[in-house]
């Protein structure tokens, strides 16, 4: 009999626990789903060909956001050009060459710490090193370098994971055929890891495109009428544009539609890019035979 009651009590606890779990899943879905829906509904009406292809006019209360889109594109491309080669080579060293030891441990901790540095600190660092010390000024180059460093740990992490996923048997098979380590890496390991490395890098692109704080002091202009002609020009950037319109100036309410439109473009861009990466990755995982 005692066992009977205790069973009932146990099932009651089970019900409470599952209720809590389902409730949190529901709350999370509702909050984030609601947020996305809200942005989508409010932003969709603003989107038009002109909005995407024209520069802002009338002290940014009218017109489009083309310079900001273009600026974000430049900064992101620059960031990936900086981070991709550095990241892949670092990851190859860490997974293929490094022997476990204090030195590798230090490098790994360093990468982890770099990953945790707040984005605003990257902004200060970019300001101190690129803008001030190297005298690049506030421009695409400074911003792209700062963002590149910001996403470097992401790229290293993704590349390491992809390299580790290449079965050890492939390496052994190649080495047992009398192929050198370097050739094994180039011919067998990297080609098999490449899709994984690229998806990881795409996630890095999404991150770089959405960051505001690091470009605030290093690249982003409040407003520029002219499009950049070199990497030493300032640019507008989508996230910074949103921040500026929503918080500064005298037309905050009047530019609300533009803010929603810009948000929708930014979210669409970032989540779209991330979605592509995630879809590629999941199809790849299904196709993999090893």
């Amino acid at each position: 009999m005692a066992l009977q009651t205790s069973m009932r009590w146990r099932y009651f606890k089970e019900g409470v626990f599952f209720g809590l779990v389902r409730l949190s899943a529901f709350l999370l879905t509702a909050a984030l789903g609601g947020l996305l829906l809200y942005i989508f509904v409010n932003g969709l009406g603003v989107l038009s060909w002109d909005f995407l292809t024209l520069p802002p006019t009338d002290s940014m209360t009218k017109g489009g956001i083309m310079p900001a889109i273009l600026g974000t594109l430049y900064l992101t491309t620059g960031a990936i050009l900086v981070a991709l080669p550095l990241g892949i080579v670092s990851a190859v060293y860490l997974t293929e060459y490094a022997k476990q030891g204090p030195l590798v441990r230090v490098i790994r901790v360093g990468v982890n710490c770099l990953a945790g540095v707040p984005s605003i600190v990257f902004g200060l660092f970019g300001l101190g090193l690129f803008v001030v010390f190297l005298q690049f000024g506030s421009c695409i180059l400074s911003g792209a370098l700062t963002l590149g460093i910001l996403i470097l740990p992401t790229i290293i992490g993704a590349s390491e994971e992809a390299l580790k996923a290449v079965p050890q048997t492939f390496r052994e098979a190649s080495l047992a055929l009398g192929v050198s380590k370097w050739q094994t890496i180039v011919r067998i390991v990297l080609p098999n890891a490449l899709p994984g490395i690229l998806t990881g890098s795409i996630l890095g692109i999404g991150r770089a495109a959405g960051e505001t704080a690091p470009v605030m002091f290093t690249a982003a202009a409040f407003y520029t009428a002219k499009l950049p002609s070199s990497i030493f020009d300032e640019v507008m950037a989508l996230p910074f544009h949103i921040y500026v319109l929503a918080t500064a100036g005298t037309h905050i309410e009047a530019t609300r539609p533009i803010q929603f439109g810009t948000i929708l473009v930014l979210v669409g861009l970032v989540l779209g890019v991330d979605l592509i990466a995630i879809v590629i990755r999941s199809t790849m995982r299904k196709r993999k035979r090893w």
Binding site: L86, I107, V111, V121, G128, I156
Partner: peptide
């Protein structure tokens, strides 16, 4: 490759240097 792998450490060092500077 080892030198490249050390870039992360170098950057961390640079961050500290320039923040302090």
């Amino acid at each position: 490759f080892f030198l490249f792998a050390c870039v992360s450490i170098l950057i961390l060092g640079l961050i500290v240097t320039f923040l302090f500077r």
